[in-house]
């Protein structure tokens, strides 16, 4: 499904991704763990094409996509949500989701039909809104809805493009314990065949949802295995506790 081979990226002397290799199976729920500055978001940026790697390969279904643009990769079914909300300001929740759904359904360039009233688009918008709990807020402007709702819309935007691979960057940041439970339920409700990568900070949450866990530290993969093993790993505990120490986690 999604495979990464020997991916590396540096900014000057700072190596943010070092020979990262991953293989994510179809339908797998993979959690990327690691302290601040471990290179999780950078890896996402490399995967979707917002950054170009110095070396290495990215393959989707065995096809090399390393040289493809951001939009071309998205059209192959790769979607992501962002760590910082990245919405269409000034528009309503419905309009936000419809922009995404229309794009995926080839309605974004229709010259006569209103894509936002298109039956297929509206169906997707309503389905996604239901999943992320925004059905009541469809006509509200994203500028006026609460932070938690915006956070859910962030994931909804990615989901509305009906991806085959969904990358979520800290979807639960800043939404509180209630939101985390709801996120669990949301995740279980997603189609089983959807391949999911989640960057997560919270170890307990990660172990609860992951089929498999990948731990990054200083841009390197230091662990790759099932959550039970990760839970018992002394190395991971050390990395996490170490990140609180004087050495710090490096850059953001």
């Amino acid at each position: 499904m999604l495979e990464v081979r020997d991916l590396s990226k540096s900014f000057g002397a700072l190596a943010v991704t070092q020979r990262v290799s991953l293989r994510v199976a179809p339908g797998e729920r993979r959690v990327l763990l690691g302290p601040n500055g471990a290179g999780k978001t950078t890896l996402f940026n490399l995967l979707v094409g917002e950054l170009a790697p110095d070396s290495g390969l990215i393959l989707v279904d065995g096809r090399d996509v390393t040289a493809l643009s951001v939009d071309a990769r998205a059209r192959l079914g790769l979607a992501r949500s962002y760590q910082k909300n990245n919405l269409f300001a000034g528009l309503t929740v419905h309009e936000n989701l419809a922009l995404s759904a229309a794009c995926a359904q080839g309605k974004a360039t229709a010259l006569l039909a209103d894509s936002h009233r298109d039956r297929g688009v509206v169906a997707t918008v309503e389905e996604v809104a239901e999943r992320v709990g925004l059905s009541e807020l469809l006509d509200a402007s994203v500028d006026t809805i609460p932070y938690g709702a915006r956070r859910r819309l962030e994931v909804g935007l990615a989901l509305a493009s009906k991806p085959r691979i969904l990358l979520m960057d800290e979807p639960t940041s800043g939404i509180g314990p209630g939101g985390i439970n709801a996120f669990h339920a949301f995740l279980h409700g997603l189609p089983a065949e959807l391949t999911i990568l989640i960057v997560e900070h919270d170890m307990d949450l990660a172990f609860g949802i992951a089929d498999r866990v990948t731990v990054l530290n200083h841009g390197e993969v230091v662990f790759d295995g099932p959550p039970q093993e990760a839970r018992d790993s002394a190395l991971i505990r050390e990395i996490y506790l170490g990140s609180w120490g004087a050495e710090g986690g490096g850059h953001a």
Partner: peptide, 26 residues
Amino acid sequence: LLRSGFGRTLVGIRANEPRMRALGLP
């Protein structure tokens, strides 16, 4: 044109061009 999918997408670009690209739009 502005009511069509083309126009909706144009407004989307104005609101957030990088996100529109990330959603798969050239």
